[in-house]
Every structure is written in structure tokens, then in C-alpha cells.
Simulated scan of single mutants.
Amino acid sequence: MQYLSCVEVEPTHEASASVIWLHGLGADGHDFEPIVKELQLPEQFAIRFIFPHSPSIPVTVNGGMTMPAWYDILDMSIDRKVDVAQLTQSANAVQALIEREIQRGIPANRIILAGFSQGGAVAYQAALSFGQSLAGLLAMSTYFATKDSIEIDANNKQLDINIMHGSYDNVVLPQLGEKALQTLQSLGFTPSYSQYPMEHSVCAAQIADISSWLQQRLR
């Protein structure tokens, strides 16, 4: 099987957990690679970090320019009209990476999906529709693009979901993060939600909170 090309950061000890972390529009798998050191995780957690590269496709809202993207964005309205078929295809490719981690000896309940912006929208779809219980979902500066079409798998109806957003984000407005929170709550989930005084990015306080959350989920 052909998998997405990835950057992989191995722990000092043999991996006992995995985090698959999806980048945003126009970036690649190297974008969040430096965050591994910034998380300052104790060695005993032995987490393998996997940063996939999206394919490069034409993006309508950027004048049809070809760039790394998980799916096409057709307009930038508050509800974001996106190519759901492409998003689902990307989510399927990410689920294949989860399956590969399971084949490599990492149980599904020791695997976390994380995604920033576009990557977060794919992570929502991939995690909530996956057929085995995962350890958690980290949704950063993103939105729940497939809320009206997703088929949530029974195994992940209790998934631990951590939503993080910048209060000054003018790319993906905070209202979209809040809307995802409300949608998930209406579906019976109990996500956590945090806002940080930042734009469409990550900040030091957020990184510290991510580290604590990962340690809690994967201890």
C-alpha cells in the first residue's frame, strides 16, 4: 500500500505511543516538526511523532494556485465551503497511517490525532469515523467541516477531544472553534476548549498545555 509521505521523529526508547500531526494549508510535514523538542516530554513516554505531507492541489480561494492542501476550499465564508470528497479522501489516507501504526505494534488507544487548521478538519473526520477507540484528538485553530456528513463510529463516541484556538485568529475565526465545540456537545461529546491571546498560530502557553494533555492521555 502507498502511504502519505511523512516526517517521523522517533523517541529515545522504543515507541509505545504515536501522535499523527497534520499541518495546515500551504505547509508540509516539517512545519510542526520542531514542536517535539518544545513539548519537553519526559523520555519514558516514548512517543513517535508522525507529520504527514499533504498532496499538492489547486486551491480555488487562492486563485487556483497549486499548493500543499488536504482539500480544496471553494469559498471563505464563515461556514467554509470545501471539497468534502477530497477531505474524506485525505482522512482515509490518515486512517491508513493509523492502521500502519497498529501494525507496528502501537495499540489504537495509544494513538492521538492532532491537526492545525485544514489539518484539524481532516483530523476531526479521520478520528471520529475510525473503527477503533483512539487515545484522543487535538484540534487546533480549526473547524468541523464535515459535521453534516460524518458517520461517527461507535468506538469513538467517547473520544477525548481537546479544542484550542487563538482569540485573535482572523484566518479561522474563533467562532468556528466555538461552533465545533457546540456541535460536538450536541452529539454527546465533552470536549475541552481553550483560547489563547494569539492569531492563527501556536504559542508557548498552548504548547505547555499540549504537553500536559499528551502526558495525561498517554501515561
Score class of each variant (00 low, 15 high):
3 Y>M: 08
3 Y>I: 03
4 L>A: 04
7 V>E: 09
8 E>L: 10
12 T>N: 02
13 H>R: 10
13 H>K: 11
15 A>I: 02
16 S>A: 07
18 S>P: 00
22 L>H: 04
24 G>D: 05
25 L>E: 00
26 G>S: 06
26 G>Y: 00
28 D>N: 15
29 G>K: 02
31 D>K: 08
31 D>V: 07
34 P>T: 09
34 P>H: 08
35 I>P: 02
35 I>Q: 04
37 K>P: 00
38 E>P: 01
43 E>I: 11
43 E>G: 02
45 F>P: 00
45 F>S: 08
46 A>T: 02
47 I>H: 02
49 F>M: 01
49 F>L: 08
50 I>A: 10
53 H>R: 13
57 I>C: 05
57 I>D: 11
58 P>M: 06
62 N>Q: 12
64 G>H: 03
67 M>S: 06
68 P>G: 09
72 D>T: 06
73 I>D: 03
73 I>A: 07
74 L>I: 11
77 S>F: 10
79 D>S: 12
80 R>P: 03
82 V>R: 05
86 Q>C: 01
87 L>S: 02
88 T>D: 01
88 T>I: 09
89 Q>F: 03
89 Q>S: 10
91 A>G: 06
96 A>F: 04
97 L>G: 04
101 E>Y: 02
102 I>L: 04
105 G>D: 08
108 A>F: 03
108 A>G: 07
111 I>N: 05
112 I>V: 15
113 L>C: 06
115 G>F: 06
116 F>K: 07
118 Q>R: 05
123 A>W: 01
125 Q>H: 14
125 Q>R: 13
126 A>F: 01
130 F>E: 05
131 G>W: 03
131 G>T: 10
133 S>Y: 03
134 L>P: 03
138 L>C: 00
140 M>Q: 05
140 M>A: 11
141 S>V: 09
141 S>I: 06
146 T>P: 11
147 K>A: 15
149 S>G: 07
150 I>T: 12
151 E>N: 13
153 D>P: 11
153 D>V: 08
155 N>G: 10
157 K>Q: 15
158 Q>S: 15
160 D>Y: 09
165 H>Y: 12
165 H>S: 14
171 V>Y: 10
179 K>W: 12
187 L>V: 02
187 L>F: 12
187 L>Y: 12
189 F>E: 00
194 S>M: 12
199 E>C: 11
202 V>P: 04
203 C>R: 04
203 C>E: 04
203 C>N: 01
205 A>K: 01
208 A>R: 08
210 I>C: 01
213 W>E: 14
